[in-house]
Design a protein around this nucleic acid. Structure first.
Lengths: 136, 136
DNA sequence: ATTTTTGCAAACCTTTTGCATGGAA
DNA sequence: TTCCATGCAAAAGGTTTGCAAAAAT
Protein backbone atom coordinates (compact mmCIF):
# COMPACT_ATOMS: atom_id res chain seq x y z
CA UNK A 1 0.00 0.00 0.00
CA UNK A 2 1.52 3.27 -1.12
CA UNK A 3 -1.16 5.86 -1.66
CA UNK A 4 1.29 8.64 -0.89
CA UNK A 5 0.15 10.69 -3.85
CA UNK A 6 -3.43 11.14 -2.72
CA UNK A 7 -4.26 13.51 -0.05
CA UNK A 8 -7.84 14.50 0.32
CA UNK A 9 -9.33 16.25 3.26
CA UNK A 10 -11.76 13.79 4.76
CA UNK A 11 -13.62 13.44 8.02
CA UNK A 12 -11.88 10.21 9.09
CA UNK A 13 -8.48 11.75 8.53
CA UNK A 14 -9.37 14.82 10.52
CA UNK A 15 -10.72 12.68 13.31
CA UNK A 16 -7.60 10.57 13.41
CA UNK A 17 -5.40 13.64 13.40
CA UNK A 18 -7.19 14.77 16.52
CA UNK A 19 -6.92 11.44 18.22
CA UNK A 20 -3.23 11.41 17.48
CA UNK A 21 -2.75 14.95 18.68
CA UNK A 22 -4.36 14.17 22.00
CA UNK A 23 -2.02 11.28 22.60
CA UNK A 24 1.01 11.40 24.80
CA UNK A 25 4.01 9.31 23.97
CA UNK A 26 3.94 6.58 21.42
CA UNK A 27 0.89 4.67 20.39
CA UNK A 28 -0.04 1.71 18.30
CA UNK A 29 -2.66 1.26 15.64
CA UNK A 30 -4.65 -0.70 18.18
CA UNK A 31 -4.49 2.26 20.56
CA UNK A 32 -6.06 4.52 17.98
CA UNK A 33 -8.73 2.02 17.14
CA UNK A 34 -9.57 1.76 20.82
CA UNK A 35 -9.59 5.54 21.23
CA UNK A 36 -11.92 5.88 18.31
CA UNK A 37 -14.40 3.33 19.48
CA UNK A 38 -14.31 4.74 22.97
CA UNK A 39 -15.03 8.25 21.78
CA UNK A 40 -17.60 6.84 19.42
CA UNK A 41 -15.75 8.12 16.42
CA UNK A 42 -16.58 5.90 13.51
CA UNK A 43 -13.48 4.91 11.54
CA UNK A 44 -12.77 1.54 10.07
CA UNK A 45 -9.75 -0.45 11.06
CA UNK A 46 -8.40 -0.33 7.54
CA UNK A 47 -8.63 3.44 7.47
CA UNK A 48 -6.57 3.69 10.60
CA UNK A 49 -3.80 1.67 9.05
CA UNK A 50 -4.03 3.50 5.77
CA UNK A 51 -3.87 6.85 7.50
CA UNK A 52 -0.94 5.84 9.64
CA UNK A 53 0.92 4.85 6.50
CA UNK A 54 0.02 8.10 4.90
CA UNK A 55 1.21 10.20 7.79
CA UNK A 56 4.35 8.17 8.03
CA UNK A 57 5.08 8.74 4.36
CA UNK A 58 4.55 12.42 4.88
CA UNK A 59 6.95 12.40 7.76
CA UNK A 60 4.43 13.52 10.34
CA UNK A 61 4.73 10.22 12.08
CA UNK A 62 7.60 7.90 12.54
CA UNK A 63 7.34 4.26 13.25
CA UNK A 64 9.27 2.82 16.13
CA UNK A 65 9.98 -0.82 16.65
CA UNK A 66 9.86 -1.16 20.38
CA UNK A 67 12.17 -3.65 22.03
CA UNK A 68 9.07 -5.73 22.70
CA UNK A 69 8.58 -6.07 18.97
CA UNK A 70 5.51 -3.87 18.88
CA UNK A 71 5.10 -1.30 16.19
CA UNK A 72 4.43 2.08 17.65
CA UNK A 73 4.21 5.55 16.21
CA UNK A 74 5.34 8.91 17.45
CA UNK A 75 4.45 12.22 15.94
CA UNK A 76 7.26 14.38 14.77
CA UNK A 77 7.79 17.52 12.85
CA UNK A 78 8.34 16.58 9.24
CA UNK A 79 11.79 17.92 8.97
CA UNK A 80 15.25 16.58 8.51
CA UNK A 81 16.74 13.33 9.71
CA UNK A 82 16.46 12.77 13.41
CA UNK A 83 16.13 10.09 16.04
CA UNK A 84 13.93 9.45 19.02
CA UNK A 85 14.58 9.01 22.67
CA UNK A 86 11.72 7.04 24.14
CA UNK A 87 10.71 6.72 27.77
CA UNK A 88 10.30 3.09 28.65
CA UNK A 89 7.85 4.00 31.36
CA UNK A 90 5.44 6.60 29.95
CA UNK A 91 6.26 6.30 26.26
CA UNK A 92 6.91 10.00 25.94
CA UNK A 93 9.57 10.69 23.38
CA UNK A 94 11.67 13.54 22.15
CA UNK A 95 13.45 14.03 18.88
CA UNK A 96 17.17 14.48 18.78
CA UNK A 97 19.42 15.41 15.95
CA UNK A 98 22.49 13.64 14.86
CA UNK A 99 25.17 15.45 16.77
CA UNK A 100 28.23 13.49 15.92
CA UNK A 101 26.41 10.36 14.91
CA UNK A 102 27.19 11.17 11.32
CA UNK A 103 30.86 10.71 12.03
CA UNK A 104 30.22 7.39 13.72
CA UNK A 105 28.21 6.20 10.76
CA UNK A 106 30.94 7.18 8.36
CA UNK A 107 33.55 5.44 10.38
CA UNK A 108 31.44 2.29 10.47
CA UNK A 109 31.03 2.46 6.72
CA UNK A 110 34.74 2.79 6.23
CA UNK A 111 35.61 -0.04 8.55
CA UNK A 112 32.97 -2.43 7.30
CA UNK A 113 33.30 -1.71 3.61
CA UNK A 114 29.55 -1.32 3.36
CA UNK A 115 28.14 1.64 1.53
CA UNK A 116 25.80 2.88 4.24
CA UNK A 117 22.54 4.21 2.89
CA UNK A 118 20.49 4.68 5.99
CA UNK A 119 20.55 4.11 9.67
CA UNK A 120 18.29 4.12 12.58
CA UNK A 121 19.06 4.91 16.17
CA UNK A 122 16.53 4.42 18.90
CA UNK A 123 17.28 5.23 22.49
CA UNK A 124 15.33 3.99 25.48
CA UNK A 125 15.38 5.14 29.02
CA UNK A 126 13.53 7.18 31.58
CA UNK A 127 12.29 10.68 30.88
CA UNK A 128 12.91 13.38 33.48
CA UNK A 129 9.41 13.07 34.95
CA UNK A 130 9.54 9.34 35.29
CA UNK A 131 12.95 9.57 36.87
CA UNK A 132 11.46 11.66 39.65
CA UNK A 133 8.42 9.47 40.11
CA UNK A 134 10.42 6.30 40.27
CA UNK A 135 12.19 7.57 43.37
CA UNK A 136 14.82 9.10 41.19
CA UNK B 1 7.38 -16.75 26.92
CA UNK B 2 10.63 -16.66 28.82
CA UNK B 3 12.04 -20.14 29.16
CA UNK B 4 15.58 -18.78 29.40
CA UNK B 5 16.40 -20.91 32.41
CA UNK B 6 15.98 -24.27 30.74
CA UNK B 7 18.47 -25.50 28.34
CA UNK B 8 18.38 -29.09 27.37
CA UNK B 9 20.21 -30.62 24.50
CA UNK B 10 17.55 -31.83 22.11
CA UNK B 11 17.39 -32.96 18.54
CA UNK B 12 15.18 -30.09 17.33
CA UNK B 13 17.50 -27.54 18.82
CA UNK B 14 20.51 -29.14 17.24
CA UNK B 15 18.75 -29.27 13.91
CA UNK B 16 17.79 -25.64 14.13
CA UNK B 17 21.30 -24.66 15.09
CA UNK B 18 22.49 -26.27 11.89
CA UNK B 19 19.87 -24.63 9.76
CA UNK B 20 20.82 -21.31 11.23
CA UNK B 21 24.51 -21.92 10.75
CA UNK B 22 24.03 -22.69 7.10
CA UNK B 23 22.21 -19.44 6.51
CA UNK B 24 23.73 -16.38 4.99
CA UNK B 25 22.53 -13.01 6.05
CA UNK B 26 19.45 -12.47 8.08
CA UNK B 27 16.51 -14.79 8.16
CA UNK B 28 13.02 -14.90 9.52
CA UNK B 29 11.20 -17.54 11.48
CA UNK B 30 9.35 -18.37 8.29
CA UNK B 31 12.66 -18.90 6.50
CA UNK B 32 13.69 -21.49 9.05
CA UNK B 33 10.36 -23.23 8.90
CA UNK B 34 10.68 -23.41 5.14
CA UNK B 35 14.26 -24.67 5.35
CA UNK B 36 13.20 -27.37 7.75
CA UNK B 37 10.35 -28.63 5.68
CA UNK B 38 12.47 -28.54 2.56
CA UNK B 39 15.22 -30.58 4.15
CA UNK B 40 12.60 -32.80 5.67
CA UNK B 41 13.69 -31.94 9.16
CA UNK B 42 10.73 -32.36 11.42
CA UNK B 43 10.31 -29.42 13.79
CA UNK B 44 7.10 -27.77 14.78
CA UNK B 45 6.42 -24.14 14.11
CA UNK B 46 6.16 -23.42 17.81
CA UNK B 47 9.53 -24.96 18.47
CA UNK B 48 11.11 -22.69 15.93
CA UNK B 49 9.76 -19.63 17.66
CA UNK B 50 10.64 -20.95 21.08
CA UNK B 51 14.18 -21.72 19.99
CA UNK B 52 14.62 -18.34 18.37
CA UNK B 53 13.60 -16.72 21.63
CA UNK B 54 15.95 -18.93 23.52
CA UNK B 55 18.91 -18.14 21.31
CA UNK B 56 18.07 -14.48 21.40
CA UNK B 57 18.00 -14.53 25.19
CA UNK B 58 21.35 -16.24 25.16
CA UNK B 59 22.73 -13.61 22.87
CA UNK B 60 23.56 -15.98 20.04
CA UNK B 61 20.99 -14.28 17.89
CA UNK B 62 19.86 -10.76 17.64
CA UNK B 63 16.57 -9.65 16.33
CA UNK B 64 16.48 -6.95 13.70
CA UNK B 65 13.46 -4.95 12.78
CA UNK B 66 13.94 -4.42 9.10
CA UNK B 67 12.73 -1.16 7.59
CA UNK B 68 9.98 -3.20 5.97
CA UNK B 69 8.67 -4.08 9.38
CA UNK B 70 9.73 -7.70 9.20
CA UNK B 71 11.36 -9.36 12.12
CA UNK B 72 14.60 -10.97 11.11
CA UNK B 73 17.40 -12.57 13.03
CA UNK B 74 21.15 -12.53 12.61
CA UNK B 75 23.59 -14.73 14.42
CA UNK B 76 26.23 -13.08 16.46
CA UNK B 77 28.87 -13.99 18.91
CA UNK B 78 27.35 -13.64 22.35
CA UNK B 79 29.70 -10.99 23.51
CA UNK B 80 29.54 -7.39 24.44
CA UNK B 81 27.25 -4.71 23.09
CA UNK B 82 27.41 -4.25 19.36
CA UNK B 83 25.40 -3.23 16.35
CA UNK B 84 24.74 -4.59 12.92
CA UNK B 85 25.31 -3.33 9.45
CA UNK B 86 22.91 -5.06 7.12
CA UNK B 87 23.07 -5.35 3.36
CA UNK B 88 19.78 -4.31 1.87
CA UNK B 89 20.44 -6.53 -1.12
CA UNK B 90 21.75 -9.87 0.12
CA UNK B 91 20.95 -9.54 3.81
CA UNK B 92 24.51 -10.28 4.83
CA UNK B 93 25.41 -8.44 7.98
CA UNK B 94 28.46 -7.68 10.03
CA UNK B 95 28.77 -6.70 13.64
CA UNK B 96 30.37 -3.44 14.58
CA UNK B 97 31.36 -2.11 17.93
CA UNK B 98 30.46 1.19 19.38
CA UNK B 99 33.40 3.30 18.35
CA UNK B 100 32.39 6.71 19.49
CA UNK B 101 28.70 5.99 19.64
CA UNK B 102 28.95 5.87 23.39
CA UNK B 103 29.86 9.53 23.41
CA UNK B 104 26.95 10.38 21.16
CA UNK B 105 24.56 8.50 23.42
CA UNK B 106 25.84 10.30 26.46
CA UNK B 107 25.50 13.63 24.82
CA UNK B 108 21.93 12.84 23.80
CA UNK B 109 21.17 11.82 27.35
CA UNK B 110 22.57 15.04 28.67
CA UNK B 111 20.72 17.22 26.20
CA UNK B 112 17.41 15.43 26.51
CA UNK B 113 17.39 14.93 30.23
CA UNK B 114 16.51 11.29 29.75
CA UNK B 115 18.40 8.67 31.63
CA UNK B 116 19.36 6.48 28.71
CA UNK B 117 19.27 2.80 29.51
CA UNK B 118 19.69 1.20 26.14
CA UNK B 119 19.95 2.00 22.52
CA UNK B 120 19.86 0.34 19.23
CA UNK B 121 21.59 1.32 16.05
CA UNK B 122 20.90 -0.45 12.82
CA UNK B 123 22.65 0.47 9.61
CA UNK B 124 21.52 -0.45 6.15
CA UNK B 125 23.37 -0.29 2.89
CA UNK B 126 25.22 -2.36 0.35
CA UNK B 127 27.90 -4.83 1.29
CA UNK B 128 31.16 -4.83 -0.68
CA UNK B 129 30.08 -7.75 -2.88
CA UNK B 130 26.73 -6.28 -3.76
CA UNK B 131 28.36 -2.97 -4.55
CA UNK B 132 30.41 -4.71 -7.21
CA UNK B 133 27.54 -6.67 -8.62
CA UNK B 134 25.30 -3.69 -8.84
CA UNK B 135 27.62 -2.01 -11.30
CA UNK B 136 29.97 -0.58 -8.68
C1' DA C 1 11.23 -40.44 38.49
C1' DT C 2 11.06 -35.85 37.51
C1' DT C 3 11.10 -31.93 34.75
C1' DT C 4 11.70 -29.83 30.36
C1' DT C 5 10.67 -29.82 25.51
C1' DT C 6 8.00 -31.00 21.60
C1' DG C 7 4.23 -31.11 18.25
C1' DC C 8 -0.06 -30.11 17.03
C1' DA C 9 -3.94 -27.47 16.38
C1' DA C 10 -6.46 -23.84 17.74
C1' DA C 11 -6.42 -19.28 19.21
C1' DC C 12 -4.79 -14.58 18.78
C1' DC C 13 -3.32 -10.32 17.01
C1' DT C 14 -1.97 -7.35 13.61
C1' DT C 15 -2.18 -5.82 9.05
C1' DT C 16 -3.82 -6.16 4.28
C1' DT C 17 -7.12 -6.73 0.45
C1' DG C 18 -11.24 -6.73 -2.64
C1' DC C 19 -14.98 -4.42 -3.67
C1' DA C 20 -19.15 -1.70 -3.62
C1' DT C 21 -20.55 2.76 -1.72
C1' DG C 22 -19.98 7.56 -0.39
C1' DG C 23 -17.49 11.83 -0.58
C1' DA C 24 -14.02 15.28 -2.34
C1' DA C 25 -12.40 18.00 -5.91
C1' DT D 1 -18.34 13.71 -13.01
C1' DT D 2 -14.42 11.65 -11.98
C1' DC D 3 -11.36 9.83 -8.89
C1' DC D 4 -10.03 8.98 -4.34
C1' DA D 5 -11.13 7.34 0.25
C1' DT D 6 -13.99 4.61 3.33
C1' DG D 7 -16.03 0.61 5.53
C1' DC D 8 -16.79 -3.86 5.82
C1' DA D 9 -15.76 -8.42 6.09
C1' DA D 10 -12.78 -11.79 4.69
C1' DA D 11 -8.12 -13.19 4.12
C1' DA D 12 -3.48 -13.27 5.19
C1' DG D 13 0.47 -13.26 8.12
C1' DG D 14 2.94 -13.90 12.15
C1' DT D 15 3.26 -15.53 16.85
C1' DT D 16 1.52 -17.69 21.04
C1' DT D 17 -0.87 -21.12 23.91
C1' DG D 18 -2.84 -25.39 26.06
C1' DC D 19 -2.05 -29.83 26.55
C1' DA D 20 -0.83 -34.61 26.22
C1' DA D 21 2.99 -37.32 24.61
C1' DA D 22 8.07 -37.86 24.16
C1' DA D 23 12.66 -36.99 25.51
C1' DA D 24 16.33 -35.42 28.61
C1' DT D 25 18.43 -35.42 32.99
Amino acid sequence: MRPSINNRDTAPRRALAELIASRHGHFTAADLIADASQRRVKVGRATVFRTLDLLTDQGSLERLDLPSGEHAYVSCAPREHHHHVVCRSCGQSVEVTDQGLQAVVQSIGARSGYRIESHRLELYGLCPDCQKESGQ
